[in-house]
């Protein structure tokens, strides 16, 4: 690791101040991506602003049909939360399959979505559930938040404070995990929401995207039969040592079916 200075502010305001005080600062959430990146010398921030002591960024609450999760809430806490399991069980299940137990104890919702890894699980949930990302400056709809490969709508220094999820009528998530990293080779999140059926796919392309044909089919009939004949196109999908674009396209159909099964269970 290159050397850096370190600050551990106790409030969102102080974090923003610490960030702007250094020319090339970086926020540190759970560190499950950032610390390995620093160890490989792939990043060289002048200062790390550790968000671990900001109480306002942690916690889970449900009120008026909206589930709200603080950005610094760990995956383990989301997975184990009675509130999340009751309001959006698919989200608790998703959080419980990220990485491994040690990673889930450190990794956070805010860190995951700010990084926007194309294979991360949470982006699919946010887009399918029609979530809103609340930063220290504004509220951003999930679909406007995830821009592309490791890119989000966040401005430099802008800090995610919490994410709010409208409680869906039913939802399900299924992923084909990479056996080493447990990142999604392909993950599909289906949700029957007040705005209709929404389907979001992660892992398959350069970033999370909605699958219109699956949404249309599931709107007519929310069943595994409805998605049976739908073939996703391999155009523009990722190809690497783990899976070709054609295989990922096939997996979209398989994971969509399993996600619907999970939603109906």
């Amino acid at each position: 690791m290159y050397s850096f200075t370190y600050a551990k502010p106790a409030s969102v305001n102080d974090a923003a101040t610490e960030f702007s005080a250094s020319e090339d600062a970086s926020y540190l959430a759970g560190g499950m991506t950032l610390i390995p990146t620093l160890k490989q010398r792939l990043a060289q921030p002048s200062q790390l602003v550790d968000l671990g002591a900001i109480a306002d960024m942690k916690g889970i609450s449900v009120a008026g049909g909206t589930l709200t999760i603080g950005a610094m809430t760990s995956h383990a806490d989301v997975a184990a939360s009675a509130d999340v399991r009751k309001a959006v069980p698919a989200l608790a299940a998703l959080a419980g399959e990220i990485g491994d137990p040690q990673v889930r104890n450190r990794g956070t919702l805010g860190g995951s979505i700010a990084n926007n890894d194309p294979s991360a699980d949470y982006p699919a949930a946010l887009v399918a559930l029609g979530a809103t990302v609340h930063t220290d400056k504004r509220a951003i709809k999930a679909e406007d938040f995830f821009i592309g490969l490791f890119e989000t709508a966040l401005e430099p220094g802008e800090l995610i404070v919490k994410v709010s999820f409208p409680v869906a009528k039913r939802a399900g998530y299924a992923k084909f995990p990479n056996p080493a990293s447990r990142y999604a080779v392909v993950g599909v999140f289906v949700a029957e929401t007040a705005e209709g059926v929404r389907v979001a796919v992660t892992g398959a392309g350069p970033g999370v995207f909605r699958a219109g044909d699956l949404e249309e089919a599931l709107s007519k009939s929310f069943s595994t039969d409805a998605v049976k004949g739908i073939k996703a196109s391999a155009d523009g999908l990722n190809g690497d040592m783990h899976a070709t674009p054609e295989y990922r396209a096939h997996l979209i159909g398989v994971m969509a079916k399993r996600a619907v099964q999970a939603a109906l269970a």
Binding site: Y6, K8, G31, M32, D50
Partner: peptide, 12 residues
């Protein structure tokens, strides 16, 4: 809670 101490700073 179990964590990986190679992926955490001592100051954290």
């Amino acid at each position: 809670k179990p964590v990986k101490s190679c992926t955490m700073l001592a100051v954290q």
